[in-house]
């Protein structure tokens, strides 16, 4: 008893402070740094720029292409309605400023300045003008953290929109990603457009992802292709978050992003979730 008392007199303050420090650190870790991110968001708010208005294209060729796209989209929707395949009306996106980048060098993440208060949920799809950017992995009241497509752990089922050849894509840092095809001889060429496939549980199908940059069909065990992501991932300032609408979640096989899917789709069964405790 006396020895304990002497130990406490000598090391008591140190021991208390150490345990307080470790306890606080564990608490912050458990909450995914919510306090820090909220403070960061509050501090950076005055420095944020206004969102740039969508560039009004005066190029007649571009205008014609846009009109044709609208025409084709509406036609496509009518055909889907006729087939009884119609999805619910498009969810409205939440425009969010990019307030921070990854806090270490190994993860490709960004922080957005909109959170649960604005309707952002874990698993929401994040897009920017140009294509898909990534997926929300954790949310606080006013911020959210996004795992980018260029992160090696982020895997997406994708499809070559010309030939419908399917594969799974993983990030490869910077603005590049690698597709592994399921088939031995996929019909794929340089310059082909890549979109998310209907097999992807985490992303709605048909979103543009990027373009094929090079193809390596001799690669074993599966042919591979390098794609250039069409979203400017290195220079993002604003992004648009699409929370999963209820109708969409029903049509998807694995809506829960943090669990292993009940019926694992082949491209995502091995994906570790970076936010799982």
């Amino acid at each position: 008893m006396f020895a304990l008392r002497r130990w406490w007199d000598r090391y008591g303050i140190q021991a208390t402070l150490t345990s307080v420090a470790i306890g606080t650190a564990l608490l912050i870790r458990q909450t995914h740094g919510g306090v820090v991110l909220e403070t960061y968001q509050w501090l950076t708010r005055p420095f944020l720029s206004k969102p740039a208005p969508p560039a009004q294209s005066s190029n007649p060729e571009m205008l014609e292409l846009q009109e044709r796209l609208i025409e084709l989209e509406s036609k496509n929707q009518r055909l889907e309605e006729l087939l009884g395949f119609a999805q619910s009306a498009k969810a409205k996106g939440i425009t969010a400023p990019v307030i921070g980048r990854s806090a270490d060098h190994w993860w490709q993440q960004i922080s957005l300045g909109r959170g649960a208060q604005d309707g952002v949920e874990t698993g929401s799809v994040v897009r920017s003008p140009g294509g898909v950017v990534g997926r929300v992995t954790s949310v606080t009241a006013r911020t959210s953290r996004v795992l980018l497509l260029s992160d090696p752990t982020s895997r997406v089922g994708v499809m070559i929109s010309r030939s419908r050849a399917m594969g799974s894509m993983r990030g490869n840092l910077g603005n590049r990603a690698v597709i592994e095809f399921y088939e031995k001889n996929p019909d794929v060429r340089r310059g082909d457009v890549v979109t998310t496939s209907s097999l992807s549980g985490r992303f709605p199908s048909g979103l543009p992802v990027g373009r094929i940059e090079s193809v390596d069909t001799a690669k074993s065990p599966a042919p591979e292709a390098v794609i250039e992501l069409s979203a400017p991932i290195g220079a993002l300032e604003w992004a648009i978050v699409y929370p999963k609408s209820p109708g969409e979640a029903e049509s998807l096989p694995a809506p829960a992003p943090s669990d292993v899917p009940a019926s694992p789709t082949p491209e995502e069964s091995s994906t570790p979730s970076p936010t799982a405790p």
Binding site: I22, A25, L26, I28, R29, Q30, T31, H32, G33, V36, L37, S102, A103, D104, W106, W107, Q109, T137, P272, P274, T275, A276, P277
Partner: peptide
């Protein structure tokens, strides 16, 4: 280190 885990990912 625990604090940096909080800011990125725990593993």
């Amino acid at each position: 280190g625990l604090l940096q885990d909080a800011m990125t990912a725990p593993f």
